[in-house]
Design a protein around this nucleic acid. Sequence first.
RNA 1: GGGCGAUUAACUCAGCGGGAGAGUGCUUCCCUUACAAGGAAGAAGUCACAGGUUCAAAUCCUGUAUCGCCCACCA
Length: 975
Amino acid sequence: MEMEKAYSPKDVEEKWLKEWAEKRLFHSMPDKAKKPFTIVIPPPNVTGSLHMGHALNNLLQDILIRYKTMTGYNACWVPGTDHGGIATQNVVEKLLKKEGKRKETLGRNKFIETMWQWRKETGDTILYQLRKLGCSCDWDRTSFTMDEKRCGAVNAAFVEFFNKGYIYRGERIVDWCPRCGTALNESEVEQENEKGHLWHIKYPVVNCPEEDCKNIFENYITVATTRPETMLGDTAVAVNPSDERYKKFIGKYAVLPLVNRIIPIIADEMVDPKFGTGAVKITPAHDRNDAETAIRHNLVFIHVIDKEAKITSHISLDLKRQPIIDKEKGAGHLVLEHLWSKDRYEARKILLDELKNKGFLEKEENYTLPITRCYRCDTATEPLVSRQWFLKMSELSAIAIESAKKRETVFFPESWYKPYILWLENLKDWCISRQIWWGHRIPLWYCMHCAGKDIQAVCCPDKKESIAPDQGKDDFSSSCSGTVDWMLNTMHLTPEYIKQNASITVENMSKDVKGVVASRHEPSKCPHCGKSDFLRDPDVLDTWFSSALWPMSVFGWPENNGDLNYYYPTDVLVTGHEILYLWVARMVMTGLYFKKEVPFKNVYIHGIVRDSHGKKMSKSLGNVIDPLTIMDKYGTDALRFALAYQSIPGRDMQISDENFIMARNFTNKIWNVSRFILMNLDDSDKDFVSKECELENIDKWILSELAAAIESANAAIDSYNPAEAARTLYEFIWAKYCDWYVEFSKVRMYGSDRKQRNTVLKIHLEVLENIIKLLHPIMPFITEEIYGYINKDNPGSILSCEYPRALSVKRNVPNQDTADVEKIIDIISAIRNIRSEMNIKPGETVEVYLRIADSCSEKTISGYAEYIKMLGKAESVKFIKEKDANPAHSASAVVGDAEIFIPLEGKIDFTAEKKRLEIKISKLEQEISGYLKKLENKNFMDKAIPEEVQRVKARYIEACGKKTKYANLIVNIGG
RNA sequence: GGGCGAUUAACUCAGCGGGAGAGUGCUUCCCUUACAAGGAAGAAGUCACAGGUUCAAAUCCUGUAUCGCCCACCA
C-alpha cells in the first residue's frame, strides 16, 4: 500500500468530487420508509463568487446533511441561485459599458436577452465552487429564482396577494438611487457617517401670509439644515411646542429666503429643542421625517429634486393635500431659473452663496451626518416620493408572530428570537416594486380600453423596443406622451402599436380599478370589455419576493406534488444573521400564508466571518481571505475544519491564516496516523479481525475515551455546535489517540508476539474507522480517501456508513482500569519532566525506580513496565519497598502515591534538584491550604453537596501525601 | 435612544457555579523507523472593574468602563 508521507489534498479532492458526481450520491427522492431531513440553500447571487461567508454557511449545511445521511435520514439539500435583481443588472450594465453600449439603447427585451446570455455563461460559477467545497447538494434539484417553475411560483403568489387585497400601489418616500434609477430597500443601501456641515439659515417671520416683510432681519427664526438645497421645497418651519424661545412664533409665518414663499410656523413634538437651533425646516417631499410631519399637519408636498437628483424645472405638487400657497404662484422655486436642472450639490453651492450674500446665512458649523448610499454604485441616495407597489404586512406579520410565539420555528441560538419578534412587530409595509428590468416582471395587466385613463405612456416610434420614460430621455425627440386613452382615441394609434412602442407608468391602481388583471399569464380578454389589448406593468419585483417563496418553490409550489408534501416543511434553515429580517421572516410569512405551515422547523443562525482584526471582510478594505485560495493552499478539508472549529454559536468569528495552518496540520496528522496503521496492517495476519482477543487496560482506556468523544460529537452536532464537535475530535485524536495510545501500542506492535500485535491492530482499526466516520461530515475528502484504503477490497462511500454511536464502542470497562492508565500517563510524564529538566539527551536511557505505596497497586503498575520503558526511555523499571532507602544520587518526583527515582550519578546537581523539589512543595502547600480552608469551613461542610466535600477531602489527602513524600525526598537528597 | 454580544496567557479564542484551558507565539532539547505540517519538556493569567447572591463565582445578578454589532433617529 502506497500512502504519501504528507497528505496532498489536490488529487484526493478531485478524485472524490468525480466519484460523488458520477454516483449521484447526494440525490434524494421521496421515500416513505425513511424520514426526510431537508435543507434549502440560501441561494447565492448568480454574480457571486465564493467568499468566506458562503463557505461557512454552506459548510454548516453540509455538515448537517452528511451527518443526517449517516444517521439514517433521507437527507435532501436543494441548491440554487438567486437572480439578484439590481446587483446583477449592474454587473451586466458595466460589461455593456465596456463595449460602449447602454441598456437604454439596447431596449428592454434585448437587454434581458443579454442578461440571460450572461447568466448562462457565468451564473453557475458559484455552484461549481460549492461542489469544490464538497457540498453534498442534490444537484439534480438545482433551482434558479428566475427559472420557469420559480417564476410560476412568484406569479402565483403575487396574483393571490393582489386578489386578496394585500398589494396596493402607494406613495412613499423611498431611497432612490439617482445613478441606478430605481427605488432601493434597506438591504440595498449602506449608511455611513460623513463629515459635512450644519448651516444655520435665517427665515424672516411675518404675522400673516399677506404681510409685507420689509426689514427681514428684525424678526426672524433660524433653522439648521444639512441640506440647504431642499429649502426650495419647504412648506413649513417646525418648533417644539414647549420651546420657550419660539412659542411666540407658533402660528405665524416664515418667508422662505430667495424664494419668497410664505410658509407656516408649526409646533410638533418631533422637534428636538436641543438640536441645532431648535427650529426645523420641513421639506415633505424629500425627507422621511418631514413627510410624516407634513401628513400630521396636512402640509403640501413640493417636489424640487428629480430622479436624477437635479433641481426640477417644473411644478410638481401634490395637490391632494391642501396647498397653503396658491397654484398661480407655483412652488416658488420656479423663480430661481438658474437652478433648474442643476445637480443637487451644485445647487447647494449656488444657494449657499446667495444666502450668504444676502445675509441669510447665520453660520456654518462642522457636523458629521449619516449618508445613505447605494450599495452597488456608492451614489448617495435621494429620499424621493415615488409610486411603488406595496405588500401589506400587518396581517402577515401577525401570523408570523403568533407562530413564533408557539415556537413553531425555533432559533439557534435562542437569543435571536427576541429581535426577530421585535422586528415583526414594528414591520412597515414592504415596497416590492423596483424600476429595473432584470427580475420578475409584475404580473399585472392593464386593459388599454378600461384602464387607459390611468396609464401614462410614452411612445417612441423610432424605436422598435419600448424604453422607460425616465431613462434615455435624450432619445425622445420624436416621442409623444400622454394617457393611453388619449393615444387611442385622439391620436388614433392602434393598440398593437402602443403595445410595441410605448413604455408606461401607472397611477394609483388597485384591484378595484376596472380593467386591471392580475394573472399568471397574459389574460386573453378583459373581464370588463372583453377586448384583449393589454399593457403589462413595467416594474419588476424586489428580488426578496422570490426568495421569500424559495422553500416552497424549489419543491414545485404552487403545484401540490409529492416532493412538496414529503420535504416541506424543511428541517432547518442555516443563515447568517444579516438576512434574518430580510429573508427569514419573509419566508416564514409567505410559508404560513400559502402553506399554513412554517417553512422550516429550526433556524440556525451562525456568525459572520471577520478578519483577524474583527473587521468585516470586504473588497474595499482589502482584507478578504479567499476560500478558494485557502483550499488551494491548505486543502478543502483544512478550510472546512478551520471554519467549523471557529464557528461558536452566537458569535462572529475572526479568522486568519493561523487557523488554516492549524487545520492543515491536523489533516496531516490524521493522514499520518492512518498511514501508520495501514502500513502495519499490510503485513498482519489476514483474518485477525475475526479472532477473539484479550484487551489490555490501555485498549479499554482508548475505547472509553472514544466513546466519550463520540457522545460529545453527536450531542454537539445535534445542538448546532460544530465548533464543539471539531474541538472534541481534535482533542481526542491528537492528544489522546496519537500522543498516547499510538505510542503505547508500539510496544505490542513492534513486539514479537503475533497475537498481541493483532489485538492492538484490531483496536487501532476500530478507533480509526470511528474517527474517520466522526470526522466525515466536517472533512469529507480525506475521510473518504482513508476509508478507501481501509476497505480497498470493498470500495464504497463512507457516507453510507452509520455515524458512530457511543454504544457501539462501549465495553464494560471498570473505572479502575482506565484510572490505572491515567496514572501511567502521569508517571511517564513525570519521568520525561525529570529527563528534560536534568538535560538528559533524548537518546540516552535511564534507570527508573518506583516506590508504590500498596502492593496491589505495585502489581498493576508493574504490568506497564514495558510502556514506561518505551515512552520514558528507561533502560529498566525497578520497584522498591517502603522500607528501602532512596536510590542514591537521584532526581525524584511524586505522582499520586507513587515515588519515582532516576539515579543520575555524576550528572545531578543537588542544589538544582533541591530547588526543583522545593518549588513543587510550595505549590502543594498552596493547594493544601486552599483545601484546608474549605474543610475547616463549617458552612462548606454543612451545605456543599457531599460529592464535592468528598472530592476536596480526597484531593487534600493526596496533596498532603505528596507533600510529605517530597519533604522526605529533600531530606534524603544525598541518598 | 432601544436591543444584543464581548472583555480569560504575548496574540486568536474555548470554558460559563466546585481543581484556570487550547492553538499560535516564546524558551530548552530532539530529523527516535506514522507525522519536523512532527515529538518531549517548560515559562506565561488578581479570568475588565466595583458591588451582590452562594458554603463556593471566570462562570449567576446589578452597576461601571471600554470595544463591537443590530434597529431607530439624526433637521
